[in-house]
């Protein structure tokens, strides 16, 4: 029996419901079994919409309506003081020739490309160590998770500013090893790296998701694989990886989407400027500057829609390719 068949027989993929919910069928059929009369049906539907009213008002008034309005604004010039003026594709054309926008895209892509693999590799490695059933596991888990809760706060961003300043703690640490430091925050070559480090520091949340999945992998699969002569590497690639692939999918998706939207650390560390030399000018920070410092609401809306399209395409590609690399066990 191959390892993969064993996994199938062993009862399916592993993971939090949301990983399956987002990646797979969003809703299992849960229509009540009792036979419905049509009046009871109608009453139930009325009750349902009564319960949904706040959410529906929010959906229409604060999400879908604003989305459409934002799309409209992206084709206008609008400074909040006088009414929007239709300008066709002018904002999008201006984006093509905006060097600061191009800087911000480059900064954001580099940030995402470094931070996401960093977070995922660290979180998976730590989860693999913890999944062996350690003593003090709850304590380790809680401590590793703590930075996730406060990593995007102003307080921690200020702390980071000091840690990587010219006379900061990190340079003091390097000095212990006789290494020459530099002003990490003030140097355009390294400022972004400090933000990547801050992001990787918050690896705890994907780690907990990995850990929950790893602890559900049935042990007999490993034993079956071992009897088939699989070494540790083979067991990892043939048992662990397929079984936690829904979690990898989920963590890649969420970490990437979240990283594209990071704002506070870049704002605080650069004092709102995105400097030095635009090296921490996150896309979101530039959008904020254009929209709310320069009151160029049309341009900011166009930027928001570009971001939406990019993230939508990324998400669609993830889902479309998921059936080639995400293993859902018996579920389908």
């Amino acid at each position: 029996m191959s390892v993969r068949e064993g996994a199938r027989a062993g009862g399916g993929g592993v993971g939090p419901a949301v990983a399956r919910g987002v990646a797979g069928d969003p809703q299992e059929a849960s229509v009540p079994a009792a036979p419905h009369t049509s009046s009871r049906r109608r009453r139930e539907a009325l009750a349902a919409y009564a319960f949904l009213t706040p959410w529906l008002v929010g959906l229409v008034g604060l999400t879908l309506g604003p989305m459409l309005y934002s799309l409209y604004l992206s084709f206008t010039r609008y400074n909040l003081l006088s009414p929007p003026q239709w300008s066709g594709l002018a904002n999008y054309q201006a984006m093509l020739a905006d060097p600061r926008l191009q800087d911000s895209i480059r900064v954001t892509v580099v940030y995402v490309a470094l931070a996401v693999p960093g977070i995922l590799v660290v979180s998976l490695l730590v989860a693999l160590v913890l999944a062996r059933g350690m003593r003090f596991l709850p304590m380790y888990r809680a401590a590793f998770y703590l930075p996730s809760l406060i990593g995007a706060s102003v307080a921690v961003s200020f702390l980071w500013r000091q840690l990587f300043a010219g006379d900061g703690v990190f340079n003091a640490l390097l000095g212990v090893f006789g290494l020459e430091g530099r002003t990490w925050i003030g140097d355009p070559d390294t400022a972004l790296l400090t933000l990547v480090a801050l992001s990787v520091w918050t690896f705890g949340s994907p780690m907990i998701i990995f850990l929950a999945g790893l602890r559900q992998v049935p042990r007999d699969l490993y034993e079956a694989a071992e009897m088939d002569g699989a070494g540790p590497v083979r067991r990892f690639t043939s048992v662990t990886l397929p079984l936690i692939s829904p979690l990898i999918f989920f963590n890649v998706l969420l970490t990437t989407v979240n990283s594209f939207q990071a704002f506070t650390p870049a704002y605080v560390i650069s004092g709102g400027t995105g400097g030095p030399a635009n090296s921490t000018l996150f896309y979101t920070l530039y959008l904020y500057q254009r929209g709310f410092a320069e009151l160029d609401m049309g341009y900011a809306s166009a930027m928001a829609w570009l971001l939406l399209v990019v993230l939508a395409v990324f998400t669609a590609v993830m889902f479309a390719t998921s059936r080639f690399w995400v293993y859902y066990g018996d579920e389908r």
Binding site: P26, Q27, T63, Y69, S70, L73, S301, L307
Partner: peptide, 25 residues
């Protein structure tokens, strides 16, 4: 119900930047 629940899931991944400008307005 299914359509609306799909909207719940879709808004999970919606970047907030798309709504901050119109919400501010």
């Amino acid at each position: 119900r299914r359509v609306l629940f799909a909207l719940v899931l879709a808004t999970l991944l919606l970047p907030y930047q798309v709504t901050i400008v119109p919400q501010y307005v």
